[in-house]
Design a protein around this nucleic acid. Structure first.
Lengths: 218, 218
DNA sequence: TTTAAAAGTTACAAATAAGTTACATTATAA
DNA sequence: TTATAATGTAACTTATTTGTAACTTTTAAA
């Protein structure tokens, strides 16, 4: 389980690193919102965020609202801000839990465990700056929605479902055009890939000549 | 929504009764574990319990473990007991949340709402200016009731139950027209969506071309 | 290095899905 | 009964999507 701790207090970071390590969590900490933002852009598999509100370069609540919420990552607020208004607002916005400092590490751990249990399945696949929300059937580039045509989306879905695996041109022909009933030229795939890549503006799709295409994690 | 408050402090009872009533919850309070036990035996439809630990005739935590947990009713502990050990134990046992006294009523309310939502027991879903009361099966636009035909309502219900998720045209066909027994043209869905949108006068329904429709929160 | 095949581009006409409107049929209520 | 609403279909409109052809570039093997 990968947990991202966004927090600037070094004592807390040190304590939590130790406690989470002992509980077999992989805890990564970032001391500014900007660093957290960069980390989120590069890493797809983050299962939970522990977030402080008072950060040196901004307000964690706004960061949650603008970025984290859209990425759909469960978040526990851990902060000295104890105002009823902020607590209610955070929880209402979508925070999974809200703990005020000073806090008990054991309590945080058990609350983390509960949140992770509630969210055991994730429907979002992230590769580089592109994320694919399977529930919504929407693809985002840095939180910005991209538009695809039905068949483009189906091809992308196929590639995302087979992450790190080659999807052969034949499989694409079968799975996509078997449904439409159309008997389609092999070149059509090439054209679709061109269109998809153009819209993605991101080279996440690798061509394997003579075989097919593949999307790699990281 | 039926909530059972197990608590002996009359000031708290009075305050919560008022606050919960204002939020359209039906709050029943019992001042002893024995009375709570009797009430639970007689009433089936209890959606959530708010539980104090220090009760005149026993320990709420034991009561939770022995009775409530077995009945599978979501429970929020609300108690003066602030020991780390008890908090962790309660949450570990299965408590949905744990608040220590003194507490903020608004925070309790928002946590109650979250618990009910997790357990799909929330009866009112609000999206933009449209709210859907599942108990009453009524849809409001800014407190004003909108009228829908039976099938229109079923489609809307399907979309609201799958908030943030695409409902495919096939699923709509299956779930709506499988029941009526009618074998219906795919275009019929389109027409229904047009009618629903016209009545809503609010663009909460997103079309995902080639796939289906979706309602997003916020 | 040459070459042939595969994949990438570009542009365009045909096809289609969804939106829209109107209407006929079937229930339901007064 | 009549009147009212609900349902399903058909015909039409629209913008988008789709598939192909012709051409260019890249790749890998000879």
């Amino acid at each position: 389980m990968n947990i991202l701790l966004i927090e600037d207090n070094l004592t807390i970071i040190k304590g939590l690193k130790y406690a989470f390590l002992k509980n077999n969590y992989n805890l990564v900490s970032k001391t500014t919102i900007q660093k957290a933002q960069e980390y989120l852009n590069q890493n797809s598999q983050i299962d939970l965020i522990i977030l402080d509100i008072t950060m040196p370069d901004g307000n964690g609540l706004y960061f949650y609202e603008d970025t984290i919420k859209k990425m759909n990552i469960p978040t526990i607020f851990l902060t000295a801000v104890a105002s009823e208004e902020v607590i209610v607002k955070s929880l209402d916005l979508g925070a999974e839990d809200y703990l005020t400092k000073p806090f008990s590490t054991k309590e945080l751990l058990v609350r983390v465990k509960k949140v992770l249990m509630r969210h055991k399945k994730t429907s979002i696949i992230k590769v580089k700056d592109i994320s694919f929300n399977m529930d919504k059937m929407v693809i985002y580039k840095n939180e910005k929605k991209l538009d695809f045509s039905p068949l483009e989306l189906k091809i992308l879905q196929l590639l995302f479902f087979n992450l790190n695996k080659v999807v052969t041109r034949n499989v694409i022909l079968d799975k996509i055009w078997e449904v439409t009933g159309n008997d389609v030229d092999d070149h059509t795939i090439t054209v679709y890939l061109k269109r998809i890549r153009e819209k993605l503006q991101s080279d996440i799709i690798t061509t394997i000549k003579g075989i097919g295409y593949r999307i790699d994690e990281k």
